[in-house]
């Protein structure tokens, strides 16, 4: 019976434990999952974030003029699960601890994280592509010290194959020949296809 009186008495003595917000400042935990931000310098546009997003809040739309793509996160759809951050291979998408989310209805469709991610032309053939971040590339080719990382990240995937074939002796690439677009891989692929087609018929 006297227990609750004691609690009430101590409550009065201790004073209110109310946070001053919204009249003053409040605390924010360091690891609080707030608004999503994306770093357009690192993003490769692989789309795994869009694939794993539970709420379908992420949209990646390439521009028709092939200058790059628009990366959009709808804060009004994002359920702050941080799956995108977990699965992003390059760490381009992160969650800040900014939770100031209330906004009037007029701003509903502007309440987004929208970044333009530009394509960079391939150093060899000029195809528009997203370069791999240098730090990530270093990690990938850690056990291959013979690969020139700085060069390889400026190449598109096809030119990278060509580059690999040229610099490694296991593939006998005629040193004199110019790197062609289809000459290297077109012929073996065709051979494979014919072989595969032929096999069941026999």
């Amino acid at each position: 019976m006297a227990g609750f009186l004691k609690v009430l008495f101590h409550n009065v003595l201790d004073g209110p434990s109310t946070d001053p917000f919204p009249l003053g400042e409040t605390f924010t935990p360091q690891r609080f999952r707030g608004k999503v931000v994306v770093d357009p310098d690192i993003c490769m546009g692989c789309g795994i974030c869009r694939h794993v997003c539970a709420a379908g809040a992420i949209s990646i739309s390439p521009r028709p003029d092939q200058s790059g793509y628009d990366f959009t996160v709808w804060h009004n759809s994002c359920c702050l699960c941080a799956q995108c951050r977990h699965y992003c291979p390059v760490g381009a998408i992160t969650l800040t601890n900014d939770w100031h989310n209330a906004h009037p209805q007029e701003e509903k469709y502007n309440w987004v994280e929208r970044k333009f991610v530009p394509y960079v032309p391939c150093a060899d053939c000029g195809t528009p592509m997203r370069p791999l971040p240098l730090s990530i590339a270093r990690r990938i080719y850690l056990n291959n010290p013979d690969i020139n990382v700085e060069r390889i990240i400026t190449l598109c995937p096809k030119c990278r194959q060509v580059e690999d074939a040229r610099t490694h002796s296991s593939c006998a690439w005629p040193a004199a020949a110019k790197p062609g677009k289809t000459a290297g891989e077109g012929a073996p692929a065709k051979a494979d296809a014919t072989a595969g087609d032929a096999a069941p018929k026999e």
């Binding site: 009430l8 409550n11 009065v12 201790d14 004073g15 209110p16 434990s17 109310t18």
Partner: peptide
Amino acid sequence: EARLQRRVG
């Protein structure tokens, strides 16, 4: 009442 419940009220 708020003070008894550690609120500002």
